[in-house]
Amino acid sequence: GGESGSTDNQSDSGNNGGGSGDSEQTFKFTSGHTTSVENQQHVGLVALAELLEEKSGGSITMDVFENSQLGSEPVMLQAVQDGSQHIVATSSTSVSNFIPEWGIFDIPFLFESTEQADEIVRGEVGDRLFETLPEHGYKGLAWLSSIERNIYGTKKIESVDDFKTATLRSIEAPGFVETFTTLGAQVVTMPGSELYTALQQGVVEGGDNSPELFLGLGHDEVSDYYNLTKIHYLPIAIIMSLDTWEALTPEQQDMVMAAAQEAAETGSAAYAQSYEESFIEMEELGVEVVNTDLTGIVEATKHLKEEMANNIPSGMELLELIESNK
């Protein structure tokens, strides 16, 4: 259970890495994410694995499992909670199933750009969210780049009016469903793995994701438009099991923390680069990038900000903190 993680699980923690029982324990971490090897999650975790091995002189190693091999984000988070998996790179939305505060980022138009989102998330706001973790058996290590989710598919979205005739797939998050519904769209929730076929067959006309994931998932093959709707910027966090964290010596903890910061920078840089490259690739692939007029969309969803924040524990506080940091 979550609460017990910080205290009485100490006795188990030696098992986390198959340790030898000596004072200088060795660890073999298992880490995972749901994206492919080109994405920042993978680049970041692989960098972390290399840094850990290098800085620890080989006493800490880490396997990285990509493409949901260890399960979806909520499933991995559950495994991290009880220490059977050690590290996960996950979006804030998945964490909100365990810690509602993290749902704050599902509010539409919270940020205006990736740069803004990253700056705020890596400051006070992110610290506040990381503080919620230990109580639930987690330790926050670092923030990768926030990703800009845009709506793509067979539907061209030029303005708010186009939502009224659209059938959209949403991830399973009330914040997303509510936003799309408020805009007048028909919303279908389905697993991401079904979206390709659903777009191909016309079951839905659109889904949303960041540019590099849109291409990485091959959804360009079944999409005509990539609409720059910029509704959500979702932070991606690298999170460790608290059991694992507490099994480390203070020196090892410092080392892991430093390595995670450095790895997150490497990962974020990869995101920034792939973001730019994605649009060049889209042009080559014949996907039309639509500069959606956001004014009407922002206007129509304005009231959601406070409504949704009110439904999140300390949501208003977090919202104000975000606004004051802009």
Binding site: G2, Q81, N97
Partner: peptide, 13 residues
Amino acid sequence: FNQGFNQTSPILG
């Protein structure tokens, strides 16, 4: 009885 208390479902809550 331990983990189920801390987790809510995404849609139905």
